[in-house]
Amino acid sequence: MDKLKVEFLISAMNQKDFSIVKKSNIKSDALLINQTDYEEKSEIQMDDCTLRRISTQERGLSKSRNLAIENALGDICVICDDDFFYNEESNGMIEKAYRDNPEADVVVFAYHSKGQSEKSFFAKKKKLGYLNALRVSSCQITFRRKSIKQHGIKFNEDFGSGSLLYKSGEEHLFLFECLKKNLAIHFDPSYLLTVDFSGASTWFNGFDKKFFYDRGAIFTALSNKYSWLLILQFAIRKYRLYSSTFTFFQAVQEMWKGRNDYLGGGKDGSTNKQCPS
């Protein structure tokens, strides 16, 4: 059986070389999307691995992800940022997951946290649907390049760190798009990496008005029909975390405002082109 080629798609900024690959303990092919102040392409061989770098003046995490997908060459692609550190056996774990689940188009893994409490994961392998996909972080996502490319799936560039509109939610929109196009998403309980959350977040500044506004837009982009239910469940589930600064009604009100502005174009000038019914 032919070996599956695993390629790590790294999103970073202002990188002068390929040292981030070693820093992340990546021991496979990698494509680095380097958002900086110039345009350039380069490629080197290191330890029998092909490392490529595309430097671009574009900004935004989702734009970086899409550029990586457009230029990826691996059979299996791994979403990667500059604060990830992979296990020694990560390549083998990824390849085994796809060998064991040939029908899987996307496999999400568990991860350890540095700088915050450990996140809980499912104990066993399972297939994920829409609700479970909401629990997934971008650091967990791997996918078959062929499946994503064939179905024209991309990250929504209105969402994600660095976007001019909404600062998060891009991974959930990506996974929902996969599910809408009948791709199979599997969870593997293997711990693939450690994520460093000790630094300042590029998008989360606490439970403020902008946070709730963006959540309302995200839930509406995920599902116009059920956005109200997603807003209510979020307000209930996270109440303990925001109750010192917002009432339940205020949180719902801000999310509803984000929902309505997303649907109507609103003050941000966003559109409803990708909002499912």
Results as ranks from 00 to 15, higher is better:
D158F: 10
K210L: 11
L222K: 04
F121I: 12
Q150K: 14
R53E: 15
K27N: 14
L175D: 06
Y38H: 14
N156V: 07
G169P: 09
M1N: 01
K210Y: 08
G92S: 12
S117K: 14
D261R: 01
S243W: 05
L232W: 14
D261G: 07
T36V: 00
T245V: 13
T50K: 12
I141C: 00
S137G: 01
L131H: 05
V107N: 02
L175C: 05
I54V: 12
H186V: 13
A110F: 05
L173A: 04
G266M: 05
S227V: 13
F211T: 02
S163K: 04
S42V: 08
E170M: 03
L232K: 15
G115P: 12
D105E: 06
D261A: 05
M255I: 09
S24Q: 14
Q250E: 15
Q253V: 07
L165A: 05
D100C: 07
L67K: 15
G74N: 08
R99P: 00
I141V: 14
I231W: 12
E88V: 11
E58W: 00
S137H: 02
T271E: 11
G265H: 03
I33Q: 02
G265N: 01
I33M: 06
Q233A: 04
D188K: 00
I94M: 01
V107D: 02
S113V: 13
E118M: 12
D100S: 06
T245C: 06
Y86T: 03
K209T: 10
V195Y: 05
E177W: 03
